[in-house]
Design a protein around this nucleic acid. Sequence first.
DNA 1: CTAGAATGAATGATCATTCATTCTCAAGTT
DNA 2: AACTTGAGAATGAATGATCATTCATTCTAG
Lengths: 210, 210
Amino acid sequence: MRAAATPQKRRKILPKAQRRQQLIEATIACIARYGLASTTMHMVTREAGLSVGIANLHFKTKENLLRETLRYVAEEYHKGQIEIMRGSEADNLSDRLTALLNFQLGRGVTQRQKMSVWFAYYGEVGARPVYQKIVSAWDRAAARELEFLFASVIREGGYTDIDPGELAIGYAALIDGLHLALLVTPRELTKQSAKKIGRDFLQRAFPNHI
Amino acid sequence: MRAAATPQKRRKILPKAQRRQQLIEATIACIARYGLASTTMHMVTREAGLSVGIANLHFKTKENLLRETLRYVAEEYHKGQIEIMRGSEADNLSDRLTALLNFQLGRGVTQRQKMSVWFAYYGEVGARPVYQKIVSAWDRAAARELEFLFASVIREGGYTDIDPGELAIGYAALIDGLHLALLVTPRELTKQSAKKIGRDFLQRAFPNHI
DNA sequence: CTAGAATGAATGATCATTCATTCTCAAGTT
DNA sequence: AACTTGAGAATGAATGATCATTCATTCTAG
């Protein structure tokens, strides 16, 4: 007996760029759900609703797909940050700081999925130089931008005894740590509290701005 | 022709506890070097200088070995912290804070190996509830202790407007973030700078103590 | 009509796990 | 002191499962 009505999926041909995007998103979903270690090509292609062979066609190897996925996630996160930090000429520095914090600790479920992926790769960074390169390149770019923003705030506020570079590293570390806490012990920390903690950090450094 | 002088390793029988310890340490070394994903049982047992079957004898499955290894690393790190935070009646609070910072960001190569392992597991936490349980149990214990220490400092220093619980989460997050930065972008951050950043955080919160 | 996108069964490599066999050593025996 | 013995620690070749990758074939759309 045949299974009743498998709607007989019709094969669809799409431009390369679109398929690549589709596969990268399926990879993100799988890593978030099953972990980097146990994500297989079958899972990814099934998630994308495509056949196994497609992966080879667009990415050649699994290693390539994973690398491109990391590149995608890293770029998205850091570009968002950088855009906010640069801001428009109009908005003042206080608002930019607040907007940055809201971006870094905001968003809904999507954000959680991205966080999982993010840390899955961090975990392998020690063993895979390629991952380290991708991540650290973006990290450097974001760090420079943050340092620049902090330097402006320091100048405007006339704060003394603050090194913008060091403070930027500290703030970035705090945000990373809060992400980790939200991922590992979500019961102990709400996104609200996390934001407050980030805000308090900035307030102690820039009391006139926050 | 026979290979010259393989010293013909003599089989040695040791108590269970010792072998388990040996295998856990070999697992740590392998994870740090090759990553959690690509660590195999062959690698671990070769690293330990033993045969493959030994793993089954002492841990039954790979999953068990990995779980016990995480338990071991988590326990070691958090117990060390907690011990310092409790301190002896004698030493004052300022010294305890400094000692804690030195412990968390101190040590040499060993520490780096442990850090790799630590984050390798964090990366899988999203996908493996067991890991989450182990890590979060210890995290909670350390967080309570830190909150208690901070509360003492706040009382002694008469600081107002500081919630010890929130500050503890912030400080712990900062330290985690600094570990991550040391792992991912070691070129951008020395252990010295990391310590200074941690110290600055405490100083802004407790100006009379640091 | 055809270039090339998409498929998925087949292939071969890798790896966790098993278990029949070997070896060790402490307790017992002479 | 020398020898025996058996409980169980340790071994590693063999097994079977999983998975990435391949490629002959099918299908699509301009």
